[in-house]
Design a protein around this nucleic acid. Structure first.
Lengths: 312, 312
DNA sequence: TGTAATTACGGGATACGTAAAGATG
DNA sequence: CATCTTTACGTATCCCGTAATTACA
């Protein structure tokens, strides 16, 4: 028996003083009301209502149970409404995960505006290079850069992820600029340590699909798990970096770094399918705070995002 | 969907951190738990739990709903237990209805003992000659004397209801004693006004089934709706009374009144099928207080009741 | 590979609606 | 006779259990 439905029927019957009225009001059969009340009486092994054709009268047990039941029903409704309302507006604590360099560079600058737009959303920005489990770590949404592993998580594509070979003018002056993938073998390469421990930066030539894959072994003396560290190293002329466009915009524009082999003749790992995604748990109902963040960040980044505009 | 069951499943899943554990503990299928939680999420249009294979994590909405749901479940259990307990022991207010003369004479003397036996039952003795509706008037149990109208009420037979023709020795000395029904027509009869406005006291002779019914018209100058009034009138020699044995015991024994035509040759209205009953609403579960009263009164009255013993 | 959650599906218990019966004024 | 509650009964629904699917370590 649906206990809540039974309590509802009982309470309304008491309040209206009639099974028939209660049934009409609640749009159910009189027989259902009767069964419900009987069911409660059986469950409680106590008579709740003495009923004749003309009158309903609460027993003592019935009066006690009526008070309780009415309160409980009100609380259920309250809980439903409050929980629903909690999700009707963007509000609450939004926990965002993102790689450090990306977060500092492309999320942090927008937080002020986001807060003004959604003052009821409190923010927790968790920056880490490591790919952590969204659910274990309690994140609502995370930014992932690169190829996505198959996952049950929903991914929303924010922008392409493209990497360029870069070096400082000083470095190029000293070592010369590479023209072909093979040249890289003789250069000092700045290695990113965690996510892509690729020791081969180049894939098969884009315009020669029949050619063999030609990975080029690279080597380097500087390795870090933080893109900003590698960026700084590149600026300082410590070697050639393979860095994402979203970290390079300023340095390329100011000339602190120069892009190498930009003729696109060579496909550079991790390939064009890689992108920047926002990922979040797969729910029928995405919470408004997450949706607000997604909408906001998609709009801010644009298509193409602003860091690619500088380059064009 | 059984909302209470769904809340139970959700709450246990949260507390145990796993749908599987919750399902095992609650002896239901994992699929059921999953469906229940999904059902709640649909109803609330809010995600409650972010779940991966390894972890369950409450959303904000989930955390809010969990608190509410746990409280509600506890209250439901509480209400059930309290209501059940309320009916487990004889207690509360017991409202007894009875005819005035009977109540004063045969209930009132036992109240002290009943209270000592069941100190948690408070008593409300409502004495009236009129037959009132049990449910309308809020009585738990009533004593009815005489033939019962067909009714949905349950009737427990307490004792036979027998009436005798009586008069005081003084009256008999003055007017003589009737020997045959026909003699009654010449006597002063004391009439009971409400319940049986019978102006014919005698039925067909018991041993002559073939004989015609021979009602005997009676007449009298004293009429009352209270048996004690008629009793007093009989004692005072105002006429012949047709009074129940339960009111006559003392007066017959002491000789203040004499029974007339006791040879049982004549059937006296309302006939031998009439009895004293306790009636109460027809419930599968008779409340303990009512049951306690019934048991008590049946035992006190005995079989045959004490007022008939005196006569024998 | 093993555990966990979800989903699909088929069979069966159950709850609902209709209708008749019983009660009451 | 009209209204109200209860009960009986047949059907349709929904819910459960099994099992296949997917995810994840």
């Amino acid at each position: 028996m649906d206990y809540l439905a039974a309590m509802r029927a009982f309470v309304r019957a008491v309040e209206l003083g009639s099974f028939s009225k209660a049934a009409r009001e609640m749009d159910m059969q009189v027989s259902t009301v009767s069964r419900y009340v009987s069911g409660l009486e059986t469950d409680l092994s106590a008579a709740l209502l003495n009923r004749s054709t003309r009158a309903l009268r609460l027993t003592e047990a019935g009066a006690a149970f009526y008070e309780r039941a009415a309160a409980i029903l009100a609380e259920v409704e309250d809980a439903r409404l409050e929980t629903t309302a909690l999700n009707a507006r963007p509000q609450g604590l939004l926990r965002i995960g993102a790689p450090g360099a990306f977060g500092r560079r492309h999320l942090a600058p927008h937080l002020k505006e986001f807060r003004e737009l959604h003052p009821d959303i409190r923010l927790d920005l968790s920056l880490t290079e490591a790919t952590v489990d969204l659910i274990d770590s309690g994140l609502d949404v995370a930014i992932r850069i690169g190829a996505l592993p198959d996952s049950s998580l929903v991914a929303r594509r924010l922008a392409a992820h493209r990497r360029l070979l870069v070096a400082s003018p000083a470095y190029l002056h000293r070592h010369g600029a590479p023209r072909e993938p093979e040249d890289i073998a003789d250069h000092h390469c700045l290695l990113f340590a965690i996510q892509w421990r690729d020791d081969a930066w180049f894939h098969r030539p884009q315009d020669r699909a029949d050619a063999e894959a030609s990975p080029v072994k690279i080597h380097g003396e500087v390795r870090a798990d933080d893109s900003d560290v590698l960026l700084q190293a590149a600026r300082d002329g410590l070697g050639i970096g393979l860095l994402p466009t979203w970290i390079l915009a300023d340095d390329l524009q100011s000339g602190r770094l120069e892009a190498l082999m930009t003729d696109r003749h060579w496909s550079i790992a991790p390939g064009p399918e890689a992108a920047i995604h926002a990922i979040y748990p797969p729910k029928k109902t995405v919470s408004p705070k997450v949706r607000a963040f997604l909408d906001f960040i998609v709009e801010r980044f644009g298509s193409p995002p602003y860091w690619e505009m500088a380059e064009g």
